[in-house]
């Protein structure tokens, strides 16, 4: 548990990350993800509760643990006037065990930028350098705090590839994100966090399955007069009905039956559609169904 004055940032988070897995903490900004990951990394002291990493507590084992962990923090600005290579060499010098600078550069695909100042790097390149500094010690656990926030899709995929490579070599990853695609793509298990608490925990597939159906049909009506929920629940395959921002959301298992049935229902009532979309259910839908809010307000 962690409090800041009257504000309780994190309360009652109880989780276990297994060796070799990629564990994600998914939640909106301000949910308490960073506080949690920093407590686990021994950067913040919890006001209550215990943390064990690699079977050790921070008390008395700090220097041992730091040798075995790799860390990328959310707001770190690496020294602007060092080159990529100098930056990696600086971080490398802190560890007893470390990888060759060239290997790390290759892993994060920054070989061509090795002599470039950090100031000259793009956002994606900086982020990969930041991950490189975390990987240079060949850590047992890699901590990543929103590693792709603000990156374009291509840069994001490059970071994902680096994380994937680390996983293949047997490393454990603990990552926070507010991108559901990131969590779905990278994580074996995900804790959905909101207001400092875990509100769901499981593999992305399990969490989506908990919705009861794997498709979402969203529609809006021209005159905006809603169709009563009872009528919608009666449609074949519909598991759940929700309203969000003037739209109606149906969680359903068989889209090919739901959509024609919905059209007939609306035609009978004389209502006409202004919008209709369907998609595979995602973690975003899980979050929406649990909290009634979206992960990101965009």
């Amino acid at each position: 548990m962690k409090r800041y004055g009257d504000v309780t940032a994190v309360a009652g988070i109880d989780l276990q990350v297994r060796r070799g897995e990629c564990f994600g903490m998914l939640g909106p900004n301000g949910a308490g993800k960073t506080t949690t990951i920093e407590i686990i990394q021994g950067l913040l002291d919890p006001d209550a509760g215990t943390v064990e990493v690699l079977g050790l507590t921070w008390e008395g084992h700090e220097s041992d643990l730091r040798q075995r962990l790799g860390s990328q923090l959310q707001e770190t600005k690496l020294p602007e006037k060092l080159t990529v290579e100098e930056t990696i060499r600086l971080f490398r010098s802190f560890y007893h065990r470390s990888k060759a600078v060239d290997d790390v550069l290759q892993t994060v695909q920054l070989e061509e930028k090795r002599r470039a100042w950090v100031a000259k790097l793009s956002g994606g390149q900086r982020q990969r350098l930041s991950v490189a500094c975390a990987l240079v010690s060949d850590p047992d656990i890699l901590f990543l705090d929103e590693p792709t926030t603000g990156l374009d899709p291509q840069s994001r995929r490059q970071v994902w590839n680096v994380i994937g490579g680390f996983r293949e070599s047997g490393g454990t990853v603990l990552i926070t994100t507010h991108y559901m695609e990131e969590a779905e793509r990278l994580c074996d298990r995900v804790a959905v966090i909101d207001h400092g608490q875990i509100i769901a925990l499981g593999s992305p597939r399990e969490l989506i399955r908990s919705l009861g159906a794997d498709h979402v049909v969203e529609f809006a009506l021209e005159d905006g007069v809603p169709v009563p929920d009872e009528a919608l629940v009666g449609l074949p395959g519909v598991e759940h009905v929700a309203h969000d921002d003037g739209k109606t959301r149906l969680t359903a298992s068989r889209v090919h039956q739901v959509v024609p049935a919905l059209m007939r229902l609306l035609a009978d009532r004389g209502a006409s559609l202004s919008e209709l979309t369907t998609h595979h259910a995602t973690l975003e839908d899980v979050f929406l169904s649990l909290t009634g809010r979206r992960l990101r307000d965009e």
């Binding site: 770190t76 600005k77 690496l78 560890y95």
Partner: peptide, 13 residues
């Protein structure tokens, strides 16, 4: 202010 100190703190420096 650049949170570099915190990053160093996370390492065994």
């Amino acid at each position: 202010t650049h949170k570099l100190l915190k990053r160093f703190l996370a390492s065994p420096m």
